[in-house]
Computed example of a mutant assay.
Amino acid sequence: MPRTRTALLGVLALLAALLSVQITGSAPRATAAPATFTHPGVLVSRGQLDHARSKVQAGQQPWKAAYDAMMASSYASLTRAARPRPVVECGSSSNPNNGCTDERQDAIAAYTQALAWYFTRDSRYARKSIEIMDAWSATITDHTNSNAPLQTGWAGSTWPRAAEIIKYTYDGGWPGASRFATMLRDVYLPEVINGASTKNGNWELIMTEAALGISVFIEDRAAYDKAVRTYLARVPAYVYLNADGDLPEPPAGSSIDTSAEIIKYWQGQSTFTDGLAQETCRDFGHTGWGIASLANIAETSRIQGQDLYPRIQDRLRHALGFHTAYENGAAVPSWLCGGSVDKGLGRVTEVAFNALHHRLGIAMSHTQRYTETHRPSGTDNYFNAWATLTHADNPD
């Protein structure tokens, strides 16, 4: 049931004091970034890929169905042609849409082709992934208009997944890898590294996922540390726990701090309970994106040797359970979003469910039912792709 207590708005200051992540100047040495980065290590590790590949080769489910769906998609087509452009212009809701869809889908295609290479060991897929990445790194110079940060986050979270697999598992060579790294460093990272504290939380989480993945590929420890710091401050400002008090945490670095401002930021919701998210009363679709990035960041950090799951697992498990319960048919109470929610969470639960349920042993009945009935997860054509294949019941 919802709870109310005195708001603990000073928690952010305590969090900042506890964080050892520092970025510049004479501050103490950063401790979040690994001394040596693990590759491939953005969202998926070599061990995870090998586990999933063995399941596909054995014809086991749900991996075989997920693999078949991926290979049947247009993203795995060897005749696919990249559609890069120098400036990608994206307004609100991608209007105008000048290269927005093309960029996102080409990034997913590069990742799909990289996965296809790893699973089949057919070098044609690796070369196609390289062709797509090279086309964009030779062309793009900027993102513009109001959705530029979010668009950069969507594509920027996907590109490194592809690049990591190709650079560190394909022995055929990638002469353009350095230019691709320069593209990520100069075109993408500056757009996402500083977050978006006053935007809806899915923006900052998606941008931070991109910043973290890029940091791994280009091995930028300062950027990695900054991304972790942004993440750890954003998570409690995105998912509420009863222990937070009367009100959710305000987003760090913003001027949103009064009761009225926080309630407005939470879509007018004034009653709070475990697992409610800042965008729940907006719609479950955007909330699902935020939850997906929340899990994806923790997954990459785990691969890199700094497991963030213990620090965010309570918020993540409650967020999943809260939203999947309503997706599964639970009645919406009158105190929640005026008694009506806009469902459509999306197939975004595989990474988090695997980490929390299969690795950590947390019982998650609502999330399990939702996840297993929405397999294979496929892709949302934005930044989530093939998570049933890569993460379902994956112990690595």
Rank of each mutant, 00 (worst) to 15 (best):
M1T: 13
P2S: 13
T6S: 12
V11N: 14
L12R: 12
L12K: 09
L14P: 00
L15W: 02
L15P: 01
L15R: 15
V21F: 12
G25E: 03
G25Y: 05
A27M: 10
A30T: 07
A30S: 13
A35V: 10
A35N: 14
T38C: 09
G41C: 06
V42K: 07
V42D: 11
R46I: 06
G47S: 07
D50G: 02
V56K: 05
A58D: 01
W63T: 03
A65R: 12
D68W: 03
D68P: 07
S74L: 06
Y75H: 12
A82T: 01
R83C: 01
P84S: 08
P86I: 07
V88Q: 03
C90F: 08
C90T: 13
E103W: 08
Y111V: 09
T112N: 05
T112K: 07
A116K: 05
W117Y: 15
Y118Q: 03
F119R: 06
T120V: 07
R121G: 05
S123M: 03
S129K: 08
D142V: 03
T152S: 13
G153E: 09
W154P: 01
W154H: 02
G156C: 11
S157A: 15
T158L: 04
W159T: 10
P160W: 11
E164F: 01
I165S: 01
T169S: 09
D171H: 13
W174A: 05
R179L: 07
F180K: 02
F180C: 09
D186Q: 13
V187A: 04
V187W: 02
I193E: 13
W203G: 03
A210Y: 00
A211F: 00
G213H: 06
V216E: 01
A222M: 01
Y224L: 11
D225W: 00
A227K: 03
T230Q: 09
L232S: 00
V239F: 01
G245A: 11
G245Q: 05
G245Y: 11
P251I: 00
A252Y: 09
S254R: 06
D257L: 13
T258H: 01
E261R: 12
I262R: 13
I263S: 05
G268Y: 07
F272I: 06
D274K: 08
E279G: 03
T280Q: 05
R282N: 12
G285F: 14
T287R: 08
G290K: 00
A298Y: 04
E299D: 13
T300R: 02
T300N: 02
G305C: 10
D307Y: 11
P310S: 02
R311L: 15
R315S: 06
R315H: 11
L316H: 02
R317S: 15
H318D: 14
L320T: 04
G321A: 12
H323V: 05
T324P: 05
A325G: 15
A325T: 05
E327F: 08
G329K: 11
G329R: 12
A330S: 13
S334D: 14
W335F: 15
C337N: 06
G339T: 03
G339M: 04
D342W: 00
L356F: 09
H358A: 14
H358Y: 15
G361T: 12
I362S: 04
M364F: 10
S365D: 12
E372F: 11
R375W: 15
S377F: 00
T379A: 14
F383C: 09
A385V: 04
L389N: 09
T390H: 09
D393E: 14
P395T: 10
D396G: 00
D396R: 08
D396A: 13
